[in-house]
């Protein structure tokens, strides 16, 4: 599942220019900080949108993760890619933030917000619609499994890389991935449009 996404993953070491920019951002250079934020924002926003269960949480998480990236930019030594490092920071921030906010909002959401359902036509015609439905199903999984599926499906990490990003052992990561995929698959099968789209899907 990672082969076609491997090219998207910039797992090589960052260039000296990026390291310098991070150093300047950490020292308080606003321009460098803005550049750095623009470089990582899309990635962090995307990660946050799949990790959080609603838009409001996703925006809060993206903002917190970006601030965390800028505040700890001085610790970036350039040994890995910037995106890899940003993903790690985002995952760690999400683990801290979502566990508290999710617990707090669980009861509220249960009674005051409708579940994230997607309505549409009888047949999925484009990838965006399928992604939308998959994201809705993904948000129903537990956070650890969601993290693993996000890193592997969305960002194209290998299991080992995903384990490193989350800071967990390889076997744990593999277990979470396997369990998450199984659950997601079961949910997809229940969704006739998605299951049909996947069956009809061909490279």
């Amino acid at each position: 599942m990672n082969e076609n996404c491997a090219k998207q993953t910039d797992s090589t070491a960052a260039s000296k220019a990026i390291v310098d920019m991070c150093r300047l951002a950490a020292e308080g250079n606003v321009e460098a900080a803005r550049k750095l934020a623009e470089m990582v924002f899309n990635r962090i926003h995307k990660t946050a949108s799949y990790l959080a269960s609603n838009l409001s949480d996703a925006e809060d998480l993206a903002q917190a993760a970006c601030v965390e990236v800028l505040c700890s930019a001085g610790s970036f030594r350039g040994e890995s890619s910037l995106h890899y490092w940003a993903d790690r920071v985002t995952i760690q921030t999400a683990a801290k933030l979502l566990t508290t906010t999710t617990r707090r909002r669980k009861i509220w959401d249960r009674y005051h917000q409708p579940e994230r359902t997607v309505t549409g036509s009888d047949k999925l015609t484009d990838r965006a619609a399928a992604r939308h439905r998959l994201a809705a199903l993904l948000s129903t999984l537990k956070l650890p499994q969601r993290e693993m599926l996000l890193l592997c499906y969305v960002h194209g990490y290998t299991t080992q890389e995903a384990a490193d990003v989350c800071g967990i052992p390889f076997e744990t990561a593999r277990g979470r991935l396997k369990k998450g995929r199984s659950k997601l698959k079961r949910k997809v099968v229940k969704d006739p449009l998605l299951s049909e789209w996947i069956r009809d899907w061909s490279i």
């Binding site: 599942m1 990838r127 499906y153």
Partner: peptide, 12 residues
């Protein structure tokens, strides 16, 4: 097939 389809769906 499931992995490839899901990955493709998320690719954007």
């Amino acid at each position: 097939q499931f992995d490839d389809a899901v990955t493709d769906a998320f690719r954007d």
